[in-house]
Design a protein around this nucleic acid. Structure first.
Length: 371
DNA sequence: CACGCGTGGAA
DNA sequence: TTTCCAAGCGT
């Protein structure tokens, strides 16, 4: 790996920051440098694209205008504000961190990356981002963009999927970061990574730092960054039970650990966890078997129906769910003593924090004539 | 350290 | 359709 002279470093900073001053995106969280605003945006932006985050950020700020409001929020309101964004532990950690700020720091944010990293949900990237953007601390903020940009600028071939690689990049960035404007420097690198120096179709020929991009100059841009691949999602079969009662539909809250923790869905039965596995030719039996897991003394009034020939599919990072919809209608309100959920009228669905997969299930149900 | 954890967009 | 990627963190 090459080593830049001080003159080259200065020229790079000038080119980058001049471009950033002219072309930086006007984003809702760039209106000011309030640590609360920077923090919320950074958590939302973890593994999530800018255009997805914008409406969530705006609603979140209306709902929870201050760190104090967030610290005191009831869990259902909290989850509703996050529903659909994914990686739901982020919002639970966020409330823990808000409570830490209010209780341990009397509502005044710590200003160093080391202190910020002690807060729940704040790791090395987010700590660097907040410290540099909100508090003007000269410290790297290394996200996927920064890995890609600097891997190309310096032709660094260390595998960015390996945790120990971070130190290599940290040392490089520490040398070239603009110490007078660290927050703008870090954000400029991220803007660069999402515009000219993208992963797939980069346009480095027109990049403001074209002449500093060694991989581009060598015609090897797409060789960087080096990143080991992850295994593909494992297919899993589920049944979704759409159960209509006189006053609404059955919903259950998922366990507090694991996938989609504490979010609301119609009852989902994992095929691999069914004690008995009836033949697909006996679907009425299957519905009865599944419902009997949690509904006692219940008459299923109408013949259960299989809904939808092809399953609803939803792909997560590690799992691909293939969900077959089953429908049943109950003549009476069921006994919910052993059922971790509630009967919800369609007009009250908005009160539930529902993941995207549940919205897909409901969409399919409606397409098939449900209401 | 390797893995679990959501979702949407691009090609 | 499949694959990969996107402002990561906790365990």
């Amino acid at each position: 790996m090459q080593h830049w002279s001080q003159a080259k470093i200065t020229a790079f900073q000038d080119a980058l920051l001049t471009w950033y001053d002219q072309e930086k995106r006007d984003l809702p969280w760039r209106q000011d440098h309030e640590p609360y605003h920077i923090w919320v945006s950074e958590i939302m932006l973890q593994q999530t694209q800018v255009q997805t985050v914008i409406p969530y950020y705006q609603r979140f700020m209306t709902t929870f205008p201050t760190v104090t409001a967030l610290a005191a929020a009831p869990e259902d309101k909290l989850l509703r504000a996050w529903a659909g964004l994914g990686y739901y532990s982020r919002v639970r950690n966020m409330q823990k961190a808000a409570q830490q700020v209010v209780e341990d720091y009397q509502g005044v944010w710590p200003q160093t990356a080391a202190e910020l990293e002690k807060l729940a949900g704040i790791g090395p990237y987010t700590a660097g981002a907040i410290a540099s953007i909100a508090f003007n601390q000269s410290i790297p903020a290394i996200d996927g963009n920064a890995f890609r940009v600097f891997a190309r600028l310096f032709e660094i071939d260390a595998d960015i999927a390996k945790p120990q690689t971070r130190q290599i990049f940290y040392d490089v960035i520490e040398e070239v970061i603009a110490t007078e404007r660290p927050g703008d420097f870090n954000q400029a690198i991220m803007d660069l990574g999402s515009s000219y120096m993208t992963a797939k179709n980069p346009d480095s020929a027109h990049s403001p730092v074209r002449d500093f991009n060694q991989a581009y100059l060598d015609g090897k841009e797409l060789d960087y960054p080096v990143k080991s691949k992850k295994p593909r999602p494992i297919a899993m079969d589920y049944f979704a039970l759409v159960i209509k009662t006189p006053t609404g539909y059955l919903f259950e809250q998922r366990p507090s650990n694991g996938m989609l923790a504490e979010l609301w869905t119609v009852p989902l039965i994992k095929w691999s966890e069914l004690a008995e596995k009836p033949s697909e030719l006996l679907l009425p039996d299957l519905v009865k078997l599944a419902t009997n897991q949690f509904l006692t003394n219940t008459q299923i009034q109408l013949a259960p129906m299989l809904l939808g020939g092809r399953p609803v599919t939803h792909t997560f990072t590690h799992q691909k769910w293939l969900i077959t919809l089953l429908y049943a209608e109950l003549a009476q309100k069921p006994d919910l003593s052993y059922f971790p959920g509630r009967v919800v009228a369609p007009t009250d669905f908005i009160e539930l924090a529902q993941p995207k997969v549940q919205l897909k299930i409901w969409q399919r149900y409606q397409q098939l004539g449900g209401h």
